[in-house]
Design a protein around this nucleic acid. Sequence first.
DNA 1: CGGCGGATCGACCCGAGGGAGGAGGTTGAC
DNA 2: GTCAACCTCCTCCCTCGGGTCGATCCGCCG
Lengths: 219, 219
Amino acid sequence: MDVIRVLVADDQELVRTGLRLVLRRERGIEVAGEARDGQEVIDLLERQDIDVVLMDVQMPRVDGIEATRLINERGGPRVLILTTFDLDEYVYGAIKAGASGFLLKDTSPQSLVEAIRVVHRGDAVIAPSTTRRLISHFVPRLPACGTAPDARVALLSPREREVLAEVAGGLSNAEIAERMYLSEGTVRTHVSSILAKLHLRDRVQAVVFAYENNLARPT
Amino acid sequence: MDVIRVLVADDQELVRTGLRLVLRRERGIEVAGEARDGQEVIDLLERQDIDVVLMDVQMPRVDGIEATRLINERGGPRVLILTTFDLDEYVYGAIKAGASGFLLKDTSPQSLVEAIRVVHRGDAVIAPSTTRRLISHFVPRLPACGTAPDARVALLSPREREVLAEVAGGLSNAEIAERMYLSEGTVRTHVSSILAKLHLRDRVQAVVFAYENNLARPT
DNA sequence: CGGCGGATCGACCCGAGGGAGGAGGTTGAC
DNA sequence: GTCAACCTCCTCCCTCGGGTCGATCCGCCG
């Protein structure tokens, strides 16, 4: 197993030093670079081989979230966000930006090291207090994906599922026909059988069904 | 800090023994009971003071998910799911049932112990590989809560938002009228101005918009 | 006070959507 | 070879949805 090369990004000297000291004690982990802001991270990644970026959120010039987004766009290394503030915007922003981890600075050194290894092998880690909030936030809207993937979905033929996805995109029959290289009549037929199979009344309910059952194609 | 009383629930003798051995080594953790299925867990909780239940999913009679649901209904202790199989149904089921944790049986003893402490203090923990899947599953549908709540939403009047929620429920104008004690004409007017303000073509696109912007009322 | 925007209703028109029904082609299972 | 399921396309018909115009009532603001 190779050494994990970590880049520490934080605008506070003290934090960087602390992290360096913590990580230096670990076998298999090496602090291969430091950065004071997001721009420095991007620049450093051009020149150095890095496996995991340990990234603060609040930094001058380019902040941690934006830097994470940039890293992900160009297929860079994994990013583990390390922040003082357990704010929803940070969490959502980080996850959307493509971060593989989200930890708070009050995490134990041991957990931090463990998290670095987790992130490095391609998995993800989220701080327990944050996980708790995320769960309580997502539970109310889980009827869709949870226990009720609605058996009726299985009734649809592959083609019908495709059409349903288009319907759920807000397209008219004519638009779907054009996009799928079909006649409008065919699209109508498909939509009709979708509605019949799912016992729905109109395409509006089909859209609702699609969203509730996660069949809407990724925007 | 008091001792954490743990109940180990698994139908396999070997697993229970292993867990007992692992946990016995830990200070501040005590295996206060064992159960072979969900029903036994429920029964035991009546008679014993338990802080955390370590719960397998696959068990005879009452399975782990169902047991978790029951425990949560009656305001019982925290539940930490411990399973061999990293299946989506298990994860969603467990979370919906109110579990505070979801770990795989290949977790290190150290992480398991840590997780028990996390769950006991009220936070939540999810296995890294599972977290990864959950994230990749939820990212595509994050435009809603994340950074882009679409400024156009602000254009809608409160009443229009109500109507939009009903539309997003798949209701026809007539149904909305009945439900909101309005004439169908009024509903039409509202829908029209919604479409105009949002630059949408028809109610189908309005439903899409509602879902993308989290305006669909909780089912 | 006048004016503006929201909420409530009505009347009209017409185009898209959906039901019913038929029809040809393909594939794969039995 | 038969049958079922799927995909493709068509016609006829009628309802629902949406645009447009107008109207009343209310509350708020300058």
